[in-house]
Write a protein that binds this DNA or RNA. Structure first.
Length: 312
DNA sequence: CCGGTGGGCCGCCAAT
DNA sequence: ACATTGGCGGCCCACC
């Protein structure tokens, strides 16, 4: 996936292109994680505009009417364009729509097909030679109509500057991954947790563990960064003796469970320090330290300098 | 496998 | 006000 620069404080600009009959379930799943990310970071990481082809209001499949901020053609430049048609997609599959999307592809480096969105992107020749996914109801027709597109049955697909997801629920997962890629794993987990989404164990895993038991233990650690569990509790949860747990850790990752746990909490702290503007005291709490001074001490020990020294 | 123990890590407090 | 540093005591854990 495309790596976005995060050094500057400029928010990423998202265009959200809706078509009549769009699924507002999908829209909510695409936007809510972005809103949550802004809130958790304490600053605007993302900003978005609602767009329609003509600039007029759009009516969702459930009858909800949404006002557009602008027409796609007048929307200027952005970083990412979400394209969200739903079941009415064949009605929007016109030469005009295709032209409009091709023109927009010059102003939006990344284009994302959501729900039936890949259909319109493919019709605009923006997915040729690419891999993409679409709502599973349409997978077969999609394959027949667009032989130049490598059709996937995955929930979410990232192929360079073209991303796609299958339906409303998967839009949430796509945006979650997008947040993780740009702003770090810990923020992604925070957002997922806010929506009670069980995203903790999917996606890119933490320190590479070889045995299933060790990776299960690390998984438990990752999900309990804020309120660390004791090593005996960990052993019990895995039906292992504390002794055995220690042995398999040493054999697998080379150090003790406690050390790994500490390092994971400090990694999370480092991500918060570098990628958010949260106060150090707040970061300490989120990473399982009751006292900020304890975290600062451990942080310096691990990374050689105090937390705020890593901030511009 | 269990138990002890030395050491490491953390919580609390005070000072800057 | 908040972050950092340092001291100290206690507890948990790694290792014998």
């Amino acid at each position: 996936m495309r790596k976005t620069k995060i050094s500057d404080n400029e928010p990423q600009r998202i265009g959200v292109l809706l078509f009549d009959q769009f699924s507002n379930h999908c829209l909510a799943n695409a936007l809510e994680p972005l809103r949550a990310a802004n809130m958790l970071a304490g600053r605007a990481l993302y900003e978005w505009n609602i767009l329609s082809t003509g600039g007029g209001p759009i009516v969702s499949s459930s009858g909800l009417s949404i006002a557009a901020d602008a027409a796609l053609g007048d929307s200027g430049r952005g970083d990412v364009l979400f394209v969200i048609p739903s079941y009415g997609h064949t009605r929007h599959d016109t030469p005009q729509t295709a032209r409009m999307l091709r023109a927009a592809s010059g102003r939006y480096p990344v284009m994302v097909g959501m729900d039936m969105g890949s259909w319109l992107l493919a019709a605009a020749d923006l997915l040729n030679g690419r891999s993409a996914t679409i709502h599973w109801d349409e997978t077969e027709r999609f394959e027949e109509r667009f032989p130049d597109v490598q059709v996937s049955r995955d929930r979410v697909v990232f192929d360079g500057t073209r991303w796609s997801c299958a339906g409303a629920m998967t839009a949430f997962e796509l945006v979650l991954q997008m947040i993780g890629q740009t702003h770090g794993e810990s923020l992604r987990l925070e957002v997922a947790a806010l929506f009670m989404h069980p995203a903790g164990n999917s996606g890119t895993a933490r320190p590479t563990a070889r045995t299933a038991q060790v990776s299960a233990a690390i998984d438990l650690m990752r999900r309990n960064l804020e309120e660390p569990v004791t090593i005996p509790q960990l052993a019990k949860a895995l039906n292992l003796s504390q002794r055995k747990l220690d042995a398999i850790f040493r054999a697998d990752v080379g150090t003790s469970p406690q050390t790994i746990y500490k390092q994971m909490r400090l990694q999370a702290a480092k991500r918060y320090v570098e990628q958010t503007s949260l106060p150090i005291a707040e970061i300490a709490v989120r990473c399982g330290y009751a006292d900020p001074s304890a975290m600062t001490r451990a942080f310096r020990e691990e990374y050689g300098s105090a937390p705020t020294a890593l901030r511009g």
